[in-house]
Design a protein around this nucleic acid. Sequence first.
DNA 1: CGCCCTGCTGGTAACAGCAGGGCGGTGCCTTACT
Length: 476
Amino acid sequence: MKLEELLYTTYGFDTFRPGQREVIEQVLQGKDVIALLPTGMGKSMCYQLPAHLLTGSVLIVSPLLSLMQDQVAQLKKMGEKSVVAINSFLKPEEKEKIWSQLGSYRFIFVSPEMLVQPFVKKQLQRIRISLLVADEAHCISQWGFDFRPDYLRIAEILPVIGHPQILALTATATAKVTEEIKGYLQLKEPFVYKHAMDRPNIAYDIKRFLTSKEKQDWLEEFVLQSGGPGIIYTGTRRKSQELADVLASLGISAAYYHGGMEHQDRIFVQQQFQNGELDWVCSTNAFGMGVHIADIRHVIHFQLPTSIEGYVQEIGRAGRDGKPALATLLYAEGDEGLMGSLVMDELPTRREIDELAAAKGDARRLVDEGIVRETAYRVGSYWLSRLSLEETHQQIESLQRGKLKQIDKIKKFIHFEGCLREYLLSAFEQDLQKKPANCCSNDGIDYSRFIISKAKNDKSTIDNWQTRLNGLLPLA
DNA sequence: CGCCCTGCTGGTAACAGCAGGGCGGTGCCTTACT
């Protein structure tokens, strides 16, 4: 069957989006592939379509349980019944059933943490897997070294399942991240598809203030006169709640979102936002992955992001519909403090490594006693089980130097006087092909194109009707 | 950096007031024993 026919019968589409055909063809030729495709441009199709032509199962490593659930639901909606997500939500009896019929699933979703468990490995060994997919593969670099070390262990499954071919999918990866994906997934001469990263419809804006107070005053005024939907990223959970409360008191429909909330509450906020019932979400960087909203008009950073890559991912959630969108970074003097401290506290300290090394088999106890942080325990144990104590110290110091560079790039960005678009692209080793009219604050932005009078929360009834009429009448 | 918590200080004791230290953000996974 021709690929287009399969595309039509499976999805009802006539043509592929940029990159999809190239990636799918390489996958079908049996090659390892790293696919850098823009968000919302059908990355999942790159493994779903080949799955129909491959004989065995497709194993997908996914970073978030919610993302897995989404994709399972999406596949089921399309009529695909042989889908399963293996994670801690499963009840023991469900697990038993899944193990007994594992080979019959076409799509198997799993977290990296599950994947490295000996029992899970043993189960996967029994079945035939044709393709291993690393979804959101930049997480290997973004999380593997300091947060979720099991992300560095994905390749351990390869000899167990007979070295299937591998497809790594992501929207944003620098040359360094691409190399790390290649190394940690043990890819053999992969085909790399790389899209042009520039998003011409997003204007990049930096606003500098002397105090946090001025910054917040500006935000309140801006949100009052701007239409949503928009995301406001904060540096702490507390701040996300504070801002949401302030905006709500001004009559704006806003909610907060962060990793410390109950799972149900997180889903609820995300769904409300997705259904257009909320104009603004004030959130930590927990919000975003797996959020599919095409018409986000504003992404505002109230505090500094912790990396340029993270920043590009976050602002990339704006304007997926191709219409003008504004990415605004707010900076008040002293904001580097929080950002720098968050970034530098990511890795285990020298003391924590020494404690872990001294405790040997009983290291877990150090976490319970509050001597070593949970994350430091997992990251530290990962390196100590592979390297000597001295080498571990050296490894952490080398990662530490990487963090300093990361911080430096953010600091340079805030005070950069050239084209912000070029600056961001250069982090991904790309040059700007064509400068859009509304490029960045250093080149001048015509804000009238972005600030939309808002009908829903406008206190003036006249303006309210005026806005609605303007919306109804064709433009003169 | 800016906050919150802890513990010290003074000196009828109680507690107000302040200094110093720690912390802040991303998420998987908890398969036993009383």
